[in-house]
Design a protein around this nucleic acid. Structure first.
Lengths: 166, 166
DNA sequence: CCCGTATACTTGCGACTGCAAATACCTTGC
DNA sequence: GCAAGGTATTTGCAGTCGCAAGTATACGGG
């Protein structure tokens, strides 16, 4: 491709992008989404780990199981936690070793595995959920009013895809 | 912690969380943020890789460099790309091997490294930027009107932290 | 009843990540 | 002009990830 060296690279790329996104429309919002997500998750992760010793990824599995009534299938769990099935296989394996979760085979489908919270898992979740909730409250919810939260949710749901992992 | 087995686990955890987030306020918005981010990035990543052979992470480095006028220091690059400095060291190393980027020492600070786009890097960015922009346009911008984009940006900027990596 | 295909999950693999420690250089105070 | 402490970057390491392929089970048509 012919590159016009006489102009600034930044404005050159801007022109290329403008063909798809006139005036760079929506680009600041997109970039804000990336930044907010990255910085918030980073902070929540380190806070939770420091205060409770539990990794956010592991907390998420426990929380999803609780939301699911205490037990879920592997695929369902992976979908809810937004990671791949193979990733969930290993996460669950780690949690089983820690005794926070139990695996049993599904009664109706011998291919299936049901993952359930153990008593220790429920206890661990009980300790950690308030800490994480406090983090989300302080860093996210407290900085926004009801209107902003509703707008955020509405807009984000419009751009959410329903693709799963392999 | 004493766990009331007689009640549902889901409502039990809900009660624990309600102490920090009355009524679970903002929790749907938070979950929407996580879902939107995960699904969008997954799709954009696979689309870009399939159509251009470039990983989104590598594209991001090239784009940040272009935005920075063609060259940036490692730390600045890592901050903009929202990853750790050590991660950026390795990404840049890969891009140097591919010939898309060049490393040179800063004139004024012998500790510093300046990363710059090569001609090949500019060319690669020119091929890939429209593809990525089209993806962002189709999956994100097109689904929202100007008001929603502005609200999204405003709300997300309010919750963005300014922490860096180690 | 059995074959072909679809689904549920796991494993081999290669690649990427961040943290902490190490290295190299700058800067300030004295 | 040099020691002490700060900054920029890289490397050792251990952990995690997703993809593709593999295993095991379910199911539908002949």
């Amino acid at each position: 491709m012919q590159v016009p060296y006489e102009t600034d690279i930044s404005t050159f790329v801007e022109r290329l992008v403008a063909h798809e996104l006139p005036g760079g429309r929506g680009l600041e919002a997109w970039s804000s989404l990336l930044r907010a997500h990255a910085t918030l998750l980073r902070q929540l992760e380190t806070d939770l780990e420091r205060e409770t010793g539990l990794a956010l990824a592991d907390f998420d599995v426990l929380a999803q199981l609780a939301n699911g009534g205490g037990e879920l299938r592997m695929t369902e769990l992976a979908d809810r936690a937004l990671i791949s099935r193979s990733g969930m296989t290993r996460r669950v394996a780690r949690l089983v070793i820690e005794g926070l979760v139990r695996r049993s085979s599904s009664g109706t489908d011998a291919r299936g595995v049901v993952v359930a919270l153990t008593d220790a898992g429920v206890a661990r979740l009980s300790e950690t959920a308030p800490v994480h909730a406090r983090g989300v409250a302080k860093l996210f919810v407290a900085r926004l009013d009801d209107k902003e939260l509703a707008a955020l949710r509405s807009a984000l749901d419009k751009v959410t895809l329903d693709c799963s992992f392999g």
